[in-house]
């Protein structure tokens, strides 16, 4: 039967295409997906990206194979352009099959995404003041303060010392507290796989644990006015000893200016009755 011929060939194309692409996705593309493997959060994002790609592959291959096949097999023959095709107005079994397959994929993705979100302590994303996905062990809180147009950092466990540079110890669970003094910014540490919006008056918490030392980029990822494009910086993940010496140095520098700064707090708000510029 002709009809089965078309369907069979499209199915074959889909299966063969998937069989070729899927291993490439799993073994070549997947592990190299951004944002890399330097933190737990980043790794779980890579994991997610890979799974998403795997789920998408058969659908993509099917649609592209179908389109390519249709373009070749169903083109009008010369002289036949105006002959009508068969009056097929639908095909219940294939409609139902499509619905079932796509629903299954969607439900799987939603469940998987949720599970992964919890398993990865929020995967480095901002979770608001009361995070629902969080690590169980001890954490090192680090505050990130956005203001036009720079980030500064405070370490409450080290006397609330404020630094211009972000330095993190490797292999320790970090708890970022991101907030802003003026407009909305977004703290994006690309290699760490961290992104959390900095809202005035809001304490936005994000978790991450760096597993390798090295430098990482920090960028503001929310338009925050004139010099938004210049709101970037480089942060460092260092080993525990280096971190201790660094923080000690910072504290020494900080002591004389401490009294000019507000005490450490999760958010900072000027007098509410006074308008900011």
């Amino acid at each position: 039967m002709r009809l089965q011929g078309h369907a069979g060939r499209i199915a074959a194309l889909t299966v063969v295409g998937t069989a070729i692409v899927l291993p490439l996705v799993i073994f070549v593309l997947g592990p190299n997906m951004p944002p890399g493997h330097r933190t737990t959060g980043a790794s779980s994002q890579v994991n997610d990206n890979t799974v998403l790609l795997v789920v998408m592959t058969p659908f993509t291959v099917f649609i592209l194979a179908y389109l390519a096949y249709a373009i070749f097999a169903f083109r009008a023959a010369a002289g036949e352009e105006l002959r009508d095709g068969p009056p097929i107005r639908g095909h219940m079994p294939s409609q139902i099959a499509w619905l079932v397959v796509t629903s299954a994929a969607v439900l799987f993705l939603a469940i998987f995404g949720t599970a992964e979100l919890f398993a990865s302590n929020g995967a480095g994303g901002g979770e608001g003041p009361k995070p629902i996905a969080k690590p169980s062990g001890p954490v090192l809180p680090v505050q990130v303060i956005g203001q036009q147009w720079e980030f500064t950092f405070r370490y409450p466990t080290y006397g609330g010392v404020e630094t211009a540079e972000l330095v993190l110890p490797v292999n320790r669970q970090i708890e970022f507290h991101v907030t802003s003094l003026d407009v909305i910014h977004s703290f994006w540490a690309y290699e760490l796989g961290v992104k959390a919006d900095a809202n005035p008056g809001v304490d936005n918490v994000a978790y991450v644990k760096a597993t390798k030392t090295g430098d990482f980029q920090i960028r503001c990822a929310e338009l925050c006015g004139l010099w938004h494009g210049y709101m970037f910086d480089t942060g460092h993940v260092v080993d525990a000893a280096q971190f201790d010496t660094w923080i000690a140095g910072e504290r020494k520098q900080f002591t004389p200016v401490e009294k000019y700064l507000p005490r450490y707090s999760v958010t900072y708000s000027p007098d509410p009755q006074v308008r900011a510029g």
Binding site: Q45, L109, G124, Y190
Partner: peptide, 8 residues
């Protein structure tokens, strides 16, 4: 739409 992936 996938929250962990959207972080980046």
């Amino acid at each position: 739409s996938d929250v962990p992936s959207d972080v980046t």
